[in-house]
Design a protein around this nucleic acid. Structure first.
Lengths: 361, 361
DNA sequence: TTGGGCCGTGCATAGCTATGCATCGCCGGA
DNA sequence: TCCGGCGATGCATAGCTATGCACGGCCCAA
């Protein structure tokens, strides 16, 4: 009974490509069996031709390639995935592409993963709770690894991911367990460095605009900043809460500088917040940056180096972060748990115009 | 001989989960067969339980779900793809994520496609020639459709894509054939509208900073602009070539305004160019915008609405573009060529500060 | 001439899920 | 009591590629 069905796909003698393979039913692609029939060889030889095996004679190879060309044959990876239990798919989970830093990292990831022979399955998650909705999908597609570029990853979310037994690399989030590891920048040290810089420039009162409360990266940057201020005997900074966006920085700065207390140095948890804050100071409050207020951000997004912004900030070593992530993924390629410790890559201070003034002068 | 191999995976009697399914060999995931064995039912019933078929009794369903929980079973989509010839994967090809407009569109796409039950395979292509390298991969993963968000798609590239017999939706590029269609904004009309606006504001001499020469979107915007200037008797604009980036706009403006001819109205092919140009005018050439020069861009990226930028621009109807694309993909879901004509969605002028001055006053 | 490689070839099968079809048990109606 | 029908179950198979294994032909060495 199989015979009749096969017969629906005609033999090798027909000349017209359309006749070789009538696009009956749902069939979209020619299979190696179709090619074999047209070429007059066995399916094995077709497979071997495309997998570059040496066990195929020149004449056979030629026949196969001709037939394949005629049928527009491309070998499917799907059966291979079934056999090898490796999809070569890596999922990247993103939340806020509005932040150019994440776009840039994503692009870097794509380039590197593609070069390493992997494909990227992109998944959007509005917040870390929604993670639960997409996880079954990821498991169903049998991704080899998951890279979470979420600004936030809750321990609960991490636990859910761990249950899948899929290696997870979390970005800028210090969650980790047997299946989850992380790659972060030196957030704490960066906070310290900024405090030192502000103090060296003669600042006396300090402000901080944070990301969402739940963001570990924001929290670490703040901790370093506060600790160093404490150590040097400076007063604690005024804190305002932002949301990692321009508008949040703008609003937070209005709130912070609208009242009686006016910090003369402001550290923002990322560049978008910092730019928003600067615009609020300059355009709405009539303050000068850096003459009245020093401002620094974090991420070194492209806009930070625009002439009109010229923002002091920290640059991630994005290449190193991606490198580390890639090597973790590659070394975790056999369903074994991760043997890696959390990785911390350096962040480098970029001094620009917004901190170029010595306030004592 | 199959029997012995199967025996390697033990029977249902073992209590410990680890014994139920010793992670021998490469096996990463439990299969429906494993679950069936543990639950003491047939594989069919496992499949039916997870596909929500009604043909399964309450008691069986319970046994299956328990066993599945114990083995961390998630049904794999891979075999389904083989059977149905549908992967529910959509490839999105991107080139320049540095442009926030494309990041935003990408994010919108992800959200909409995921909501429609598709997954997004993200592919990076540095330029349209490199397209040839990734195309075999895409075919191998059996993607249902390809969305090209490349700023540039050459006819040759389009032809390559067409050969795959995979529906292709090109973004802002008017290439189309039996398998390739396009979704664009009203670039030509936008160019006209900007010319009208500049003239209404009393501008006398005009400039244009383009994207790469090969970008059709840039070309259309310029054509509309030039045509309307011609119609109204204004002189032809001075043209400079940019690259869709801030730095390109900056350099092009320095070149254009550094010489003797000084346009008093400048249209840039996108917002990044416009912002670069404005910074060059203000920070390097000491010119005032809009008092000395009117400037307009295209895309309405977030930075365009920053208080310090306040750029007149055009906003794409991104939601409509994504809607159209999605409906094309959904209607093309059976390996049939596209029945759709190229779609053009409206672009709306957003007037802001950079054109708020009447030069005659 | 004969036997031992070796190269090229084809056969058969694994891998996992969905589903048409046959089967079985059971209930209710005649 | 008997049978039709229905709900639940299991069997078998499609879908496509990679690969271990066996086989057939050929060449070369003994």
């Amino acid at each position: 009974m199989t015979a009749e069905k096969k017969a629906a796909t005609p033999g090798a003698e027909d000349a017209s490509p359309d006749k070789d393979w009538p696009r009956d039913s749902l069939k979209k692609y020619a299979s190696s069996i179709d090619v074999a029939r047209v070429a007059g060889v066995s399916q094995s030889q077709v497979s071997r031709t495309f997998s570059g095996s040496s066990k195929v004679s020149e004449s056979t190879r030629k026949k196969v390639l001709e037939a394949a060309e005629r049928l527009d044959y491309r070998p499917s990876l799907i059966p291979r995935i079934m056999l090898t239990h490796k999809s070569n798919l890596v999922a990247i989970v993103v939340g806020g592409l509005y932040n150019p830093f994440y776009s840039a990292v994503l692009e870097e990831f794509m380039i590197r993963f593609q070069a390493a022979g992997h494909q990227v399955l992109l998944v959007h998650v509005p917040n870390d709770h929604a993670l639960d909705d997409v996880i079954p999908k990821l498991a169903s597609y049998r991704v080899d690894a998951i890279v979470s570029a979420l600004a936030i990853l809750s321990p609960a979310g991490a636990a859910t991911l761990a249950k899948l037994k899929i290696p997870v690399i979390a970005f800028n989030t210090a969650v980790n367990n047997r299946w989850v590891t992380s790659v972060s920048s030196e957030n704490f040290q960066a906070g310290q460095t900024i405090a030192d810089l502000f103090i060296a420039r003669g600042a006396r009162s300090f402000g901080f605009i944070s990301g969402p409360w739940t963001s570990p990266a924001s929290a670490r940057r703040r901790e370093g900043y506060e600790e160093r201020l404490r150590e040097t005997g400076a007063g604690p900074p005024t804190i305002a809460r932002g949301d990692y966006r321009y508008e949040g920085g703008f609003a937070a700065a209005l709130g912070m500088f609208g009242g009686s207390s006016r910090p003369d140095a402001l550290f923002c948890a990322n560049d978008l917040l910092a730019i928003g804050a600067i615009d609020a100071l300059r355009e709405r409050l009539g303050l000068r940056v850096p003459d009245d207020v020093l401002v620094a951000g974090f991420d070194d997004i492209p806009a930070a180096s625009w002439a009109s912004v010229d923002l002091t900030t920290f640059t991630h070593d994005a290449a190193a972060m991606v490198d580390e992530t890639l090597s973790i993924v590659l070394s975790a390629e056999n369903g074994k748990p991760l043997a890696t410790k959390p990785v911390v890559v350096s962040a480098r201070l970029i001094e620009r115009g917004t901190t170029s003034k010595d306030l004592r002068s």
